[in-house]
Design a protein around this nucleic acid. Structure first.
Length: 548
RNA sequence: GCGCCCGUAGCUCAGCGGAUCAGAGUAUUGGCCUCCGAAGCCAAGGGUCGUGGGUUCGAAUCCCGCCGGGCGCGCCA
């Protein structure tokens, strides 16, 4: 089929609209999904939208459109005759055979169902987590890991060549603080002592690092050695956490390399050459206000060192130079001010980098509640819930599903007690259970699933079966929308709905009925449900167990 | 003070450039296993969609004000 039923009907209606008036009308019909099943599979509010343009009552327009398209609709074989409803809606009811074909399509495409190759598929980078190697990964990083990995998977599902990148800020003042903290611990100090570094990290993990540093023969006086040891130890720790979380990166980019490669220097030179800089108070400034920033930014401090702004620009420049024309940065909203700055810096280079480059997905910080009280996430205070804690408590799948189940910019309260004590209530089990249930039916049946793609499907006509068919048919479009809007949470909600409809069906109808044709049709439907559940869960990085 | 984000059922959250949009889960209450897995299903109660205006045939959704919460506002990163 050249195009799916929905697009084809949209095309027919759009053609019909052109015939409504002798005047040319620029209007593209887009079908909507009605909330109520009795309103059909799709509906169009085109008549209401056109009422003003045509100066006609919407119901009259709908009636005309219905007549004008009747023949094309009939010839297409896709839909029953359009129904006029309400204030001027046209409801579309797909022919049963068309809906039933969804099952065969899913079984043929298997793991590829829901995947596509959009026009203009390209090299895309998703940068996420990018935690400083100054402490273990916490819940916020977990949200970012779940979100970023799902985004990457969604973009891959649209045919893009995706690179997952982790940027290590291993060269700034925070690292210096880390080194000083380890050094202080190594020489026997505690955060309570008067000589403790002003911005030192107070967590107990510093003590552990200091101990192994000493055990490895490190001397407290050697700051550089302490720095290297601490960074290596924490990177190793973070890598282990990410592995436990099932998130893998293609590239780890080190901030320090920007200095050793001379990219920081050349970025400064390029900015100066652009003519957008000026000297004031002994410092070098960039006119970022010309690119929407609320104040100009310092590039080189009066003491001769660079602000973090420079490596940031240099780093994002490498993304452009490495050929990524689409880049998505996943960050916490506490970094939202860097968005304008980075973009301004890139534009100031005068290389033709578009104003909106790169894309950002900013997520709200996770509020962790334990014992009815908020647990402050503070590395320096050393008291916070680590990603590893969460995984240990409720399991990787539950954490990933939960963390990606909310809109990125929504507030997020993670109740630790709830997650620990009632892990059975976690929505991921509901979805996984549906998958396991299908598997169970198949092992009960014991037949060969291979031939089900060719099973006759015309018996799938009940209301629950129709609902499932409709839901299954939506999946590819849903994935495309989620990828386009960078909104993986919609996948999680979809899976819950699909699982719910399957559970209802399963409770209401028997799958393994005596009648052979009906049994094969139902099994085919179940196989399709299982496939889509598995495909959706895969996008979220969650396993689809055959048994629970 | 300025900027960005968020206020939807007791709780956690979907729905967000309109219409067929008052929703899900959870919690509470009452039903369903001699029958493919009860981590399930069915049903009930529960909200002036923070608030006041505006635009429109129509606003949870768009615009403005206000209130409340979060995060930013450094020659820190």
């Amino acid at each position: 089929m050249a195009s799916d039923p929905k697009s084809e009907i949209e095309r027919i209606l759009t053609e019909g609209v052109k015939k409504l008036s002798s005047e040319p009308i620029e209007f593209h019909v887009e079908l909507e999904k009605p909330r109520r099943a009795e309103h059909g599979d799709y509906s169009s509010s085109a008549a209401l939208q056109l009422a003003k343009i045509l100066a006609m009552p919407p119901r009259k327009i709908a009636e005309n459109l219905q007549k004008l398209t009747a023949e094309s609709i009939a010839n297409s074989g896709l839909s029953e005759p359009l129904e006029l409803a309400g204030a001027g809606f046209l409801n579309i009811r797909l022919k049963k055979s068309i809906k039933q074909k969804t099952v065969a399509r899913i079984l043929e495409q298997g793991g590829k169902y829901g995947h596509a190759t959009v026009p203009g598929a390209e090299k895309v980078m998703v940068e996420f987590v990018s935690a400083n190697p100054t402490g273990p990964l916490h819940v916020g990083h977990g949200r970012q890991a779940a979100l970023g990995d799902a985004l990457a998977a969604l973009l891959e599902a649209q045919g893009h060549a995706v690179t997952r990148e982790f940027y290590y800020n291993d060269a700034g003042a925070q690292i210096q603080n880390l080194a000083l903290s380890v050094q202080a611990r190594a020489s026997g100090m505690t955060p309570e002592d008067s000589g403790w570094p002003a911005d030192g990290y107070r967590g107990e993990y510093i003590e552990e690092i200091a101990r192994s540093f000493a055990a490895a023969g490190g001397k407290a006086g050697d700051l550089e050695a302490a720095r290297q040891f601490a960074v290596a130890a924490l990177r190793k720790e973070q890598d282990a956490d990410l592995q436990a979380f099932g998130v893998a990166f293609d590239v780890y980019y080190l901030e320090s390399s920007l200095y050793t490669d001379g990219r920081v220097e050349s970025a400064v030179k390029a900015l100066v050459a652009s003519g957008k800089t000026y000297e004031r108070d002994g410092a070098l400034w960039l006119r970022t206000t010309e690119y929407g920033d609320d104040k100009d930014r310092v590039v080189r401090k009066s003491d001769g060192s660079y602000t973090y702004f420079v490596p940031d620009v240099a780093y994002h420049l490498t993304k452009w130079e490495r050929g990524f024309r689409k880049v998505v940065n996943v960050q916490g909203t506490d970094h939202h001010s860097t968005v304008t700055r980075v973009r301004a810096g890139l534009q100031a280079l005068g290389l033709g980098i578009p104003p909106g480059y790169p894309d950002y997905v900013l997520h709200n910080l996770v509020k962790v509640v334990r014992g009815g009280e908020e647990v402050k996430i503070s590395k320096r205070a050393g008291s916070y819930v680590t990603l590893r804690d969460l995984i240990d408590w409720v399991g990787r799948d539950a954490v990933r599903f939960f963390l990606v189940s909310r809109r990125a910019d929504a507030d997020f309260v993670f109740d630790v007690d709830l997650a620990r004590s009632q892990s059975d209530e976690n929505p991921v089990y509901y979805v996984q259970y549906a998958h396991a249930r299908v598997c169970s039916v198949f092992s009960q049946w014991g037949g060969d699933t291979g031939g089900l793609a060719a099973a006759p499907l015309d018996s799938l006509a009940g209301p629950r079966e129709s609902a499932l068919l409709q839901r299954l048919a939506e999946f590819p479009e849903l994935v495309a929308t989620a990828a386009h809007e960078l909104a993986p949470h919609s996948i999680a909600f979809y899976l819950r709905e699909l699982a719910g409809e399957f559970h209802s069906y399963y409770n209401a109808e028997r799958i393994l009925v005596d009648d052979e044709a009906a049994r094969r049709a139902r099994l085919a439907l179940c196989a399709a449900v299982r496939q889509v559940l598995a495909n959706g869960l895969a996008l979220l990085g969650v396993s689809a167990p055959e048994r629970m």
